[in-house]
């Protein structure tokens, strides 16, 4: 019986989770929400994490009804993510690991998402679409690595949505993407936007520039409403993601899709992916906001897999890095 404590804080979500084997004992989260029209900056986000992390740790321990001495292993996000917030959280993880004399495991954030998705949905060997504010990747497992078949060549899909939400001054509570999704439900008229797919890679920065530049004109003239623009943006960029995912499936001969990451909560994306899957006789696996959005449990789970497969890291290696690719990790826990 292994009890794992996981710390996550690579972006604006601070998450602490406790797992007992595959059972979630607690999954606590605090989100740094900025005013409408503003994004979150590394320094302020790090401060948010610093101000909340001790309370959150106590909350998660008491919810899980676990005493520090009962914990077997501590895990934290090594990267990728924003430098300041990563360091703020790693500092606390390192401190409690020393205080309680527990092994400390550095976890790749993307691997955390994938493994949590596999645990929650029970899928075997899916083609993974990982979509969030900082990442957009199409991933498949082969030969001890999660290999990236396609990815964004510029900004992440969530970043594209978030930045458009800022143009419209939508609220960042609970998340800009959620508010775009709600508004898009009333959209009817499709604005033709650039559609940028290069092989299995996608690009969003041109689309964002295009819609940012045209938004004011269209809104003023009444040609398109805010809802129409949100709708058009979603329809276009999600179609790009579904298309490239389908191409990766055809390439690998896969019949399972798993969507993970914050944008994975979006029900329109899920429904488009579902339609594609039904058409090709495949199965879609998706999770809800508890596990799609960054959380501590996923870090605990991925770390536990590393721990159980015999991971032994040096203390000097428990640092953070903003650049840490999914395909840099050797997957020791899968065949």
């Amino acid at each position: 019986m292994v009890i794992t404590l996981g710390f996550e804080g690579s972006a604006n979500k601070l998450g602490i989770g406790i797992l007992q084997n595959d059972k979630v004992l607690s999954n606590c989260r605090r989100t740094y929400v900025t005013p409408p029209g503003e994004g979150f900056l590394p320094r302020e986000t790090a401060r948010h994490h610093q101000n909340n992390i001790v309370d959150l740790l106590q909350e998660s321990l008491s919810k899980a009804n676990v005493k520090p001495h009962e914990i077997d292993v501590i895990c934290y996000t090594k990267g990728p993510g924003m430098g300041g917030p990563l360091v703020a959280v790693a500092l606390v993880a390192r401190t409690v690991a020393q205080l309680w004399n527990k092994p400390l495991i550095p976890v790749n954030h993307c691997i955390g998402h994938i493994e949590m998705g596999r645990l929650v949905t029970g899928c075997e060997n899916p083609t993974v679409l990982y979509v969030s504010g900082g990442n957009t990747q199409i991933i498949a497992y082969s030969n001890k690595k999660y290999r990236i078949f396609g990815e964004t060549i510029d900004i992440a899909v969530g970043n594209c949505l978030d930045r458009f939400a800022r143009v419209l001054k939508l609220s960042n509570d609970p998340s800009p993407g959620y508010n775009i999704e709600q508004l898009a439900k009333q959209g009817k008229k499709l604005l033709p936007l650039p559609y940028v797919v290069k092989g299995m890679d996608v690009s969003f920065s041109g689309i964002l520039t295009f819609i940012e530049e045209k938004a004011e004109k269209y809104l003023k003239s009444g040609e398109y409403t805010e809802a129409d623009l949100c709708f058009s943006l979603q329809e276009t960029i999600f179609a790009m993601l579904v298309e490239t995912t389908e191409r990766a499936m055809a390439h690998c001969g896969s019949n399972e899709v798993l969507i993970v990451g914050g944008v994975g909560c979006n029900e329109r994306l899920q429904s488009m992916m579902h339609t594609m899957c039904v058409e090709r006789g495949a199965v879609l696996y998706a999770t809800d906001e508890r596990y799609c959005i960054d959380n501590g449990v996923m870090i605990a789970h991925a770390g536990a897999l590393m721990f159980k497969s015999g991971f032994h890291g040096k203390w000097e290696d428990t640092f953070c890095t903003q650049r840490f690719r999914t395909d840099d990790v050797v997957v020791t826990w899968r065949d």
Partner: peptide, 15 residues
């Protein structure tokens, strides 16, 4: 080429 029903019909026709 099939009609991709996951795509908005206008977008699908255009592509």
């Amino acid at each position: 080429r099939f009609v991709k029903t996951y795509r908005h019909p206008e977008l699908d026709a255009r592509l």
